[in-house]
């Protein structure tokens, strides 16, 4: 075995050596909104259809969501992962939304005719602040990025779901869980 050559080692401190911040940092909203607009415009340049654009935004959101939730649990040492579906949704709507978007989402609703569908409603999503959608892309809602964040959180917490964003009462995020998740949740109730 070769001896470790200290002189060749990078002096760079590893990111794991740094302690994690308290997460109270804030930046100007306009700064975020302008960066998000650039993100949308970049994705638009790469996408051929509105659908493709939404998918790109959702994918990026998922990446962010997965990391945000990791960060949340890493920091809040005492919090436990929710195992009940409703509690998980409430956690997203309240605690999570508040720490990352500055306030709770406006509403959480359960669909009347589909057991596996829930709605999270937000009148004015932060990300849409500078975005006004041209008429030819009428049904595009860039908050699908936030939808992606929700999806990222749910999927990495064991609640597989698909989340889409719609223009309804402001923005409505439609959360559709996979059937086995609903079945599992019901089984837990029966116990």
């Amino acid at each position: 075995m070769n001896p470790i050559q200290i002189s060749n080692m990078r002096q760079k401190t590893s990111i794991l050596d740094k302690s994690i911040s308290k997460g109270k940092g804030e930046i100007n909203m306009n700064c975020f909104a302008l960066m998000f607009s650039e993100l949308v415009q970049y994705c638009q340049g790469k996408a051929h259809t509105v659908n493709e654009l939404q998918m790109r935004l959702s994918d990026l959101g998922q990446e962010v969501g997965t990391k945000l939730i990791d960060l949340h649990f890493l920091r809040e040492k005492n919090s436990k992962r929710e195992i009940k579906l409703l509690n998980m949704l409430l956690f997203i709507k309240s605690t999570f939304w508040k720490s990352f978007f500055g306030r709770e989402a406006d509403k959480l609703e359960h669909s009347n005719d589909d057991d596996s569908t829930y709605y999270i409603i937000e009148k004015e999503p932060l990300v849409n602040k500078f975005i006004s959608v041209p008429k030819d892309k009428g049904n595009l809602n860039c908050a699908v990025f936030v939808g992606g964040i929700i999806e990222g959180i749910l999927n990495s917490s064991g609640f597989n779901a698909k989340v889409t964003a719609h223009w309804h009462k402001g923005t409505t995020y439609m959360v559709k869980f996979e059937d086995h998740i609903i079945t599992r949740d019901k089984q837990m109730d029966e116990r």
Partner: peptide
């Protein structure tokens, strides 16, 4: 308005 810097 401010936004959480980690989201950014």
């Amino acid at each position: 308005k401010k936004v959480n810097s980690e989201l950014f």
